[in-house]
Computed example of a mutant assay.
Amino acid sequence: MGFYCKKKAPASKGAELKKKLDRVFSQYIRLRDMLPGTTLFRCISCNKVYPIGEADCGHYINRKHMSTRFSEVNCHAQCRQCNRFDEGNMSGYRLGLVRMYGETRVAYLEAQKYETRKYGDYEYEELIRHYKKEIARMLEERGEKITVLSKKIGVKI
């Protein structure tokens, strides 16, 4: 009985596009949630202020649910402590969402996770283009270069 290495099948174009959209969308969310005139953000869950370089793109509804994975209501800048070590601090996250959007909108978001959503390659490509444009627009409006946010996504600033 010999040992062998099983070759990993190459990732589909859709999987690569999803990974790229995850990166671009995350950058967009963190830039969107920066406090005006600063490079700081307020964590949606614990309400503390941190430098933008310490932000994660936190998801209230888990990323495995494609129906809300790229929802701008579902995703917000979140400190690494809350997102990675406090299991998302979901009770704090929900309170932050209710403050921002109201109970009805949060209840609707919670119901959306049960919907089935599949993206085609064209949809991924269009969303990537859209969010790259939004990032470039926001950076230009702010007159800032924030390399921690823009270096990996190919936005020319």
Results as ranks from 00 to 15, higher is better:
residue 12 S to K: 11
residue 126 E to D: 15
residue 12 S to R: 11
residue 111 A to P: 01
residue 8 K to T: 12
residue 137 R to G: 09
residue 120 G to Q: 08
residue 19 K to F: 06
residue 72 E to S: 10
residue 48 K to F: 01
residue 148 V to S: 12
residue 147 T to F: 09
residue 69 R to W: 03
residue 36 P to C: 04
residue 151 K to H: 15
residue 66 M to W: 02
residue 30 R to W: 00
residue 29 I to E: 05
residue 141 E to Y: 08
residue 48 K to S: 11
residue 120 G to H: 11
residue 56 D to S: 13
residue 34 M to I: 14
residue 104 T to C: 03
residue 134 E to Q: 04
residue 28 Y to C: 06
residue 5 C to Y: 10
residue 24 V to Y: 06
residue 33 D to I: 09
residue 128 I to M: 00
residue 34 M to H: 04
residue 149 L to W: 05
residue 23 R to N: 14
residue 61 I to A: 01
residue 79 C to N: 03
residue 86 D to Y: 08
residue 135 I to W: 09
residue 20 K to C: 07
residue 93 Y to M: 08
residue 149 L to R: 10
residue 26 S to A: 09
residue 146 I to G: 06
residue 7 K to H: 11
residue 57 C to T: 00
residue 90 M to T: 13
residue 42 R to C: 14
residue 130 H to R: 07
residue 64 K to T: 02
residue 73 V to S: 02
residue 54 E to K: 03
residue 116 T to I: 09
residue 127 L to E: 15
residue 122 Y to D: 13
residue 72 E to H: 04
residue 140 E to M: 11
residue 24 V to P: 05
residue 46 C to G: 10
residue 75 C to A: 09
residue 109 L to T: 02
residue 21 L to C: 12
residue 54 E to Y: 08
residue 143 G to I: 04
residue 41 F to V: 01
residue 124 Y to W: 07
residue 135 I to M: 09
residue 112 Q to H: 03
residue 62 N to K: 04
residue 75 C to D: 03
residue 66 M to E: 12
residue 77 A to F: 01
residue 18 K to T: 07
residue 62 N to W: 05
residue 133 K to Y: 07
residue 119 Y to M: 14
residue 108 Y to Q: 13
residue 49 V to K: 10
residue 19 K to Y: 04
residue 118 K to I: 11
residue 105 R to P: 02
residue 10 P to I: 06
residue 1 M to K: 13
residue 95 L to K: 12
residue 75 C to I: 00
residue 114 Y to W: 15
residue 47 N to I: 00
